[in-house]
Amino acid sequence: MVTWVECLQGGAAIATVVYGYVRLSHKRRAEVKAIAYRWGSYIGCAVIGGASIIEIYKFGTSADPITRRDVLWLLLNLWNAIAYIGCGIALAAIWHRMDKRKADELTDDPEDKR
Rank of each mutant, 00 (worst) to 15 (best):
V2A: 11
V2P: 03
V2Y: 02
W4F: 07
V5R: 14
V5N: 05
E6F: 07
C7N: 11
A12M: 07
A13Y: 14
A13T: 05
A15M: 08
T16W: 08
V18H: 02
Y19V: 00
Y19F: 10
Y21A: 01
R23Q: 12
L24Y: 06
S25Q: 07
H26S: 15
K27F: 08
K27N: 04
R28C: 00
E31N: 11
K33M: 06
K33R: 12
K33D: 10
A36H: 13
A36K: 14
Y37H: 06
Y37P: 00
R38E: 13
S41F: 15
Y42L: 06
I43Q: 06
I43S: 07
G49T: 00
S52R: 01
S52T: 00
S52N: 06
I54K: 11
I54T: 14
I56Y: 06
I56G: 02
Y57Q: 03
F59M: 02
G60N: 12
T61E: 08
T61W: 09
S62W: 02
S62A: 13
A63M: 04
P65Q: 03
R69C: 10
D70S: 14
D70Y: 05
V71A: 07
L75N: 04
L75F: 10
N77K: 02
L78V: 14
I82Q: 02
I82P: 01
Y84D: 01
I85F: 12
G86S: 03
C87H: 08
G88E: 05
G88W: 06
G88Y: 03
I89M: 08
A93W: 10
M98H: 15
K100P: 02
K100T: 11
R101T: 04
K102A: 15
A103S: 10
D104Q: 13
D104W: 09
E105I: 09
T107D: 00
T107K: 11
D109C: 05
D109L: 07
D109T: 06
E111T: 12
D112C: 01
R114V: 07
